[in-house]
Design a protein around this nucleic acid. Sequence first.
DNA 1: GTGATTGATAGGATTTGGCTATGGTAGCTT
DNA 2: AAGCTACCATAGCCAAATCCTATCAATCAC
Lengths: 294, 294
Amino acid sequence: MEVHQLRYFCAVSETGSFTRAAEKEQVAQPSLSQQIMKLEEELGVRLFDRLGRTVRLTGFGQVFLPRARAILGEMKAAKEEVAERQSSVSGPVSIGVIPTIAPYFLPLPLALFSRKYPQTCITVVEDVTARLMDRLRAGQIDLAILATPMRGHDVESFTLRTERLLAILPRAHRLAKKRKVMLKELRDEPFLLLREDHCFRDTAIEVCKRARVMPRVVFESGQFSSILAMVGAGLGISIVPEMAVEQRPDCTFVSVGDDRASRTIGVVTLKGRYLSRVQLAFLAHLQTFAQKEA
Amino acid sequence: MEVHQLRYFCAVSETGSFTRAAEKEQVAQPSLSQQIMKLEEELGVRLFDRLGRTVRLTGFGQVFLPRARAILGEMKAAKEEVAERQSSVSGPVSIGVIPTIAPYFLPLPLALFSRKYPQTCITVVEDVTARLMDRLRAGQIDLAILATPMRGHDVESFTLRTERLLAILPRAHRLAKKRKVMLKELRDEPFLLLREDHCFRDTAIEVCKRARVMPRVVFESGQFSSILAMVGAGLGISIVPEMAVEQRPDCTFVSVGDDRASRTIGVVTLKGRYLSRVQLAFLAHLQTFAQKEA
DNA sequence: GTGATTGATAGGATTTGGCTATGGTAGCTT
DNA sequence: AAGCTACCATAGCCAAATCCTATCAATCAC
């Protein structure tokens, strides 16, 4: 049973004639006759009585007609539903963000996008890189914003921005007045760092390693605000990315002078993953927040 | 959008693999890939994410899947409904019968058929020949039982039986004792006949004409029982077919000796009309009531 | 790295739907 | 009554679309 057979069948039913049906369906009359016969053969019943000049539905034809119409209608509806979802920038977008980016970067883009496309519904998952990647691969989120570059051949990414790292010191610290500080100068300071599964901890340790500094960790947390508060209380020092800077009376941020003391953040998508128009729109939207490289 | 494309799409959705779907659908994998791509092209969206080894539905695919399934289900159901109606001897049969046959011939075949096929529903229309033919051509009745032969190239018929005509006389009539009577002997009798639209009136007049008798009609009715009663009352005489004979104390039936003094009844169907299995079964059933020609 | 599995691509073969021309029949017109 | 027209069926050819085999590219496992 083929689609065009159903179309031809309905056309004959409506016009009451093979010839007129053929005109309507833009085919030659013999072709249409042939397809109707084929359909009748497959169903094992005659659908039309050919009575000389007139053509009339048989009892079976009358039974079959509404069903054929329903099927064609369903097809049209299915196609239209897809087209509808395709044309309108609406529908769900799921994104993942790591905790060291989410509160600093995301609020503005999110708010602007929602205002621009009110039809959309954005879900944000805040988690650490490893779990976000799992979700990305599982198709649970459409894209992730995290520290790049990501290794892995199954993902694609583009850079949003590269930001300097800053040492955060108690305001009373001996180095707090400097405009720039080298990590070597901090080698004996007690360090406050993020917990192990946070990638920025790795970034911080990596940059220390390059400076031949082995940080002595005295405090671990899941968020920068805790660390800032502890530094302010004089517990030690830490390193944060630029976007985590917030003015506090008890802390000072000093630029880290070491080479490559920076963090790059970017947007990661799964390679081969098809993105809907909303999802692509959100990606493009994020791209407008990318800063030119220094 | 073609049916096999929907089938392939569902198969991939179910198996999660193009290769396994191709096996399931009994086609080569490239053919299946090709058809999926064609479907995607027509819809304008990707339906699957090809992620290395795994294949997963996109958001559009998820939307489309239930609709595709519904369409395939509808097709199956439509086919099955037709098959169901085809295989079972059940459903409606509409027949037409003229009044001069209906009460005599029909009761027994009708009762036996209903007992044999309890699923069936037989509708009987009793009307005169002309109107039955109209209904037959309009498709309102499937067959008609009437006096044959029918002229007209758009119908087909077979004979049920040929019956002798009988003169019906008051019991006290001078010819009532004879075993056979010629129409000439009745030329001066007052005739009771059916009304004009009844074909048996034509039959009776025709046979009279052949005997050079011009009947003088003194009473007209729509049914034989009225005529019988009137003849019994001595109003005149009449001619009836064999099946209309009923024993009455006041009437005598005498065989008409003229050549071709008979009526043939048969079953008429519309040429080119498709008959369902029940309808054919009823035709065959009627045929078992046909009598061999003398 | 190597082999195995999976989906995409390429090119040739087969099927099939479509077209033109024609036949046959019913119904209308002259 | 004959011819004409309208309509569906049939026949034969053609073109398009599907399917197949062979092969490639990429991924994943060992």
